[in-house]
């Protein structure tokens, strides 16, 4: 599995990854439906960069991220995060990544933000959780709401808490599935500021899926366009206009 791209160490390498989902009929001997989510995706994300993946609904963005997060196993091809193969060294991969599922339900709604992070810190085997939690809460701008139950949080706060959880163990690679979905413009700008700061100050690599072309153009050094399970274009330092053209 190659881990270098053009002389720069690659944080994420995807080579020929394909995934087909089989949807079985509940009646015996009835035909099953198949969904080809990915059809041989090649992707390299350079270390310390923010890389965007854009594409229409059903293009395979979330599947790609879930394969990298070791939640789904590809049918063929190879993928590695931080040099560790997602299938044979899945525990190493999970140590290296911070993942937001794009689903607000992934938090315990009856616990407070701090209690959610305490549990997440134990799952990540963090030795000094108090400091790590304070840092994550500060980064996500949730210090004032830390001791409130999550059930009273707005969509934006839930997203930020998801991000705080993903950042707790200072991962080398962030995998963010539509992190700015349903955020208001101010919250979205705050999120972008956090991501840019993590890249600049912490050297964190981020792979982000989004529908928002302006967001992709603003924060990503490189953007891959995924359509029908294939990367059909890649743009470096793209503008919103050039991305719109690539998507068309």
């Amino acid at each position: 599995m190659p881990t270098r791209s053009g002389g720069t160490a690659a944080a994420v390498v995807v080579a020929g990854v394909a995934k087909t989902f089989v949807v079985r009929s509940w009646r015996p001997n009835r035909p099953t439906a198949t969904v080809e989510a990915l059809r041989g995706v090649d992707l390299t994300v350079d270390r310390g960069t923010i890389h965007g993946v854009i594409g229409p609904n059903g293009s395979g963005k979330s599947t790609l991220l879930r394969i990298l997060a070791t939640l789904v196993v590809a049918d063929s091809g190879q993928a590695a995060v931080g040099g560790a193969d997602v299938v044979t060294a899945s525990l190493d991969v999970r140590r290296a990544i911070g993942f937001t599922t794009g689903d607000e339900r992934s938090l315990y709604w009856r616990l407070t933000a701090r209690q959610n992070l305490e549990f997440a810190a134990a799952l990540q085997h963090i030795t000094d959780p108090v400091d790590a939690i304070e840092t994550a809460l500060t980064t996500a701008n949730l210090v004032d709401s830390a001791d409130r139950p999550v059930s009273g949080f707005s969509q934006g706060m839930l997203r930020r808490l998801g991000l705080a959880r993903a950042l707790l163990h200072r991962p080398a690679v962030l995998l963010l599935d539509e992190p700015s979905r349903s955020l208001d413009p101010v919250a979205r700008d705050d999120l972008h500021a956090v991501l840019l700061d993590l890249r600049t100050a912490g050297g964190v690599t981020t792979l982000i899926t989004t529908h928002d072309l302006a967001e992709a153009a603003h924060v990503c050094e490189k953007v891959s366009v995924l359509r029908d399970g294939r990367i059909v274009a890649e743009r470096t330092n793209a503008t919103e206009r050039s991305l719109r053209k690539a998507l068309a």
Partner: peptide, 14 residues
């Protein structure tokens, strides 16, 4: 059902 299983399974634990 809560939707928390994925968040558990992406952590470095068997």
């Amino acid at each position: 059902q809560q939707g928390t299983l994925e968040a558990l399974l992406v952590t470095p634990n068997e």
